[in-house]
Write a protein that binds this DNA or RNA. Sequence first.
DNA 1: TTTCATGTAACTTCATTTATTACAAATTAG
DNA 2: CTAATTTGTAATAAATGAAGTTACATGAAA
Lengths: 155, 155
Amino acid sequence: MKRDSRLSSVLHALLHLAEHQAPMTSEALAKCMATHPVVVRRTMGMLRAAGLVASARGHAGGWRITADLAAVTLRELHDVLGEPAVFAIGNRNETPGCLVEEAVNAALDDAFAQAEALLLERFARITLADLAADFARRHAERRAQDHERGDRDAL
Amino acid sequence: MKRDSRLSSVLHALLHLAEHQAPMTSEALAKCMATHPVVVRRTMGMLRAAGLVASARGHAGGWRITADLAAVTLRELHDVLGEPAVFAIGNRNETPGCLVEEAVNAALDDAFAQAEALLLERFARITLADLAADFARRHAERRAQDHERGDRDAL
DNA sequence: TTTCATGTAACTTCATTTATTACAAATTAG
DNA sequence: CTAATTTGTAATAAATGAAGTTACATGAAA
């Protein structure tokens, strides 16, 4: 099964937009995400419909964030993307033809529902601001490492 | 995305086998699961490799359970099926090209890992015997309903 | 020795995501 | 005004992976 990576994509895009204050074109976003500009427009279009980003055409156009980073959770983005199916595993028939299948479906559905609830609850606790902060931390760490390496090389 | 329904399939098959004490042919199993006999053989073959079922060829051949219903958990079946990917959602690139992607992946991976752990923990707590008991309960309930309807129709 | 049934490889179908092409519409630079 | 830039969107193709199907070999029992 091919995994839906749109949530990952939009997070990547939104954080890049948060770094830039100028709008970024679909082409620029596509390049840094190794995908196609049309895919970017298609996916970002859903965020625009939800009022999280804005786009402008023509020269100096592109995408920019309009939402508050601290107010947007992964859960909201998941919803904005249409709440795609979370699991790659599922029941053979959703409408059971026999009682055996009914019992099997009930057990699996229950377990999946619990796992999905946990996942969405975790998503609801993570904001774009959290990710941006984590990025900043990694960035500082990387710079510190580079610096250390530079010192060592300079000996 | 097409969901992997093999776990659901083998549960259905195993419970049917548990009801029958005589072996069931791939064709019989396929018929009650609305699938193809070869698909049954392919999937059940993985359970045979794990020693959970046995198959016999020729007249009066077919599939039978060799494992103790109370000892087989959904978790074990999931493992036997090769631990297929649980989620239909995932990271765009598993090997991040930039720090932004690293931060995004880390957050998503963490949430998915927690949800998967919960799911597998639930799976580990459900045995085939539990499902068989649930089936028996449903069966009794259904019979009671049928009986009631019979009484009403007889008025 | 015929029939039944599994074992397995090879191939097709089907569903779904992502990629691509093509072109319309809008905006700005010159 | 016109050309360049950039989004908007439809339509189509490629890629992926599960499930379905065909074909035939193997083995067991009547």
